[in-house]
């Protein structure tokens, strides 16, 4: 008698259905074998009802002209919170000086009252200076980066 083989077609079908569904985790038990699968959940703003009416506008980068160089500008924090650097989207890499970022790409995010707010590139740019580290607290209007428009 041969060993009981796992029905790979069945597993593939189940995984496909799981992928298409809104479920975020799955437990399978076949022939005494256990399988646990979890979906990656993308970071997105979580706004509870309590705070909804307090949020006036999101992602309104503040841009101040740098005194040093004509082409350089500062991107400032538009809210108070804790800063995290993430670039490019869905990558473990952190934003670095010298990075080229396309308009609309995420450069980092600020967590304020448990809500995540992305800091997007306001135009195509090269990062000249980064003034903030991961997990640093930020205040309103604090310079996050000095960038050069390209």
């Amino acid at each position: 008698m041969g060993k009981k083989s796992i029905d790979t077609k069945l597993i593939k079908d189940v995984l496909k259905k799981f992928e298409e569904s809104e479920a975020t985790s799955l437990k399978l038990e076949l022939n005494s074998k256990k399988l646990k699968i979890k979906k990656a959940i993308p970071i997105q703003p979580v706004i509870s009802d309590l705070y909804e009416n307090q949020i006036i506008e999101q992602n309104k980068n503040i841009i101040e002209k740098s005194d040093d160089k004509d082409k350089n500008v500062f991107i400032e924090a538009d809210r108070v919170g804790k800063y995290f650097s993430i670039h490019p989207p869905d990558s473990p890499d952190r934003l670095k000086e010298g990075d080229t970022i396309a308009h609309g790409e995420r450069m980092g995010h600020i967590v304020s009252m448990e809500v995540v707010y992305d800091v997007f590139a306001p135009f195509d740019l090269v990062v000249k200076n980064i003034y903030i580290n991961d997990s640093d607290p930020v205040e309103y209007g604090q310079a996050l980066y000095e960038v050069e428009a390209i």
Binding site: I55, I56, R79, V80, G81, S112, M113, V138, E139, Y140
Partner: peptide, 24 residues
């Protein structure tokens, strides 16, 4: 902690930045 622009509605009355300031 700087919490916003000059207008009170954007700073001294803007609850999310005040709560965040307490948290950070």
């Amino acid at each position: 902690v700087c919490i916003g622009e000059a207008a009170s509605i954007d700073s001294y009355l803007y609850i999310p930045n005040i709560i965040s300031a307490a948290q950070i």
